[in-house]
Design a binder for these strands. Structure first.
Length: 302
DNA sequence: ATGGTACCCTGAGAGC
DNA sequence: TGCTCTCAGGGTACCA
């Protein structure tokens, strides 16, 4: 499901169950997802205390008390759900109790973490479900994280003020790849995906097909477009996180609730709709770039 | 180094 | 109903 706002939403949903809990058992139900699980995966996790749950780009990382980090990526279709108590029974939920999401398709429940922790009186299970199996999990020593192949080339987070027009200009200078491709390049900016790139480009009034280097002036300075783009990226990401991410195809968050940012999409998956920009009058188009759909207004995105 | 493509996998929805 | 086709929020390997 995940771009950065969805992964951050998952992190916040899982943190109360994961943090300060002990992993008492791990069910690893197949040898691989996108990649093989590491050797002795379940064994290395069993007995560990989870000291924190973080996020870098689209990766979730659970810090463990032995100095290792459980790194998890959701791919396209991965999701977690939290189960508490006797979820298999038909007992009605207690009033005011959490909604307990049942598995949509238990065949794709690939990993189950059994936890004991202080957050809730009941034992907790965290279940990873991933029909397409583009997600993966691995274990990395914390001291080796920065130099790990997954992380060493990752670009900056599109949150906070670090991403400004000048940095964007530096990253994109002289690049001939389209803006769409440059924004999706995780080595430049880490965490953007197809939806939020489409949305940010529309907000900034920039065409996804325009060469990335053209948002830099001849003098090597950030253009007005670069200013708008940096702002648009930070805003759309912040708004999406605040909304609990986007829930496409009924994809639920860890606590069973749905994010609602999909209702704020201005162009994504809106081919043929009138451009929502005031006074534009254009139409939202869909064109494939690099094998993925770009949604944009052909009139106001230059 | 840079940019483009094919491919990994399953499920949902459209069209016939 | 059932078939076939296309598409899907990601990333990597490999090519020119």
């Amino acid at each position: 499901m995940p771009e950065l706002p969805e992964v951050e939403t998952v992190r916040r949903g899982l943190a109360p169950s994961f943090e300060d809990a002990r992993i008492v058992r791990v069910e690893q139900r197949r040898p691989d997802l996108r990649f093989p699980f590491p050797e002795r995966f379940a064994e290395r996790l069993t007995g560990r205390l989870v000291t924190g749950l973080g996020r870098r780009s689209k990766y979730l990382m659970a810090d463990l008390d032995d100095g290792s980090v459980l790194v998890m990526h959701l791919g396209m279709s991965g999701s977690f759900r939290v189960e508490m108590g006797r979820v298999e029974s038909e007992e009605p939920e207690m009033p005011g109790e959490f909604h307990i999401p049942r598995s949509k398709d238990p065949r794709h429940d690939h990993v189950v973490f059994h936890l004991e922790g202080p957050a809730r009186p009941d034992a907790v299970r965290i279940v990873y479900n991933d029909p397409r199996r583009f997600g993966f999990m691995t274990l990395v020593e914390r001291a080796a994280l920065a130099s790990h192949p997954l992380f060493e080339k990752l670009g900056i987070e599109p949150t906070g003020n670090q991403l400004d027009a000048d940095l964007l200009a530096r990253l994109f200078a002289n690049r001939k790849a389209p803006l769409k491709a440059a924004l999706l390049d995780q080595r430049l900016i880490a965490g953007l995906g197809n939806i939020y790139v489409c949305e940010a480009l529309h907000r900034a009034g920039l065409s996804p097909k325009r060469a990335a280097g053209t948002i830099v002036t001849k003098a090597g300075r950030a253009s007005a477009g670069a200013e708008r783009l940096a702002l648009a990226i930070r805003e759309v990401i912040a708004e999406a996180i605040a909304a609990g991410g986007s829930s496409l195809r009924d994809h639920r968050q860890a606590d069973g609730t749905l994010g609602y940012f999909q209702h704020a999409f201005l162009v994504y998956d809106r081919e043929g709709a009138p451009c929502p920009r005031q006074g534009c009058g254009g139409t939202v188009l869909r064109e494939v770039q690099g094998g993925r759909s770009s949604f944009f207004c052909g009139r106001c995105q230059k």
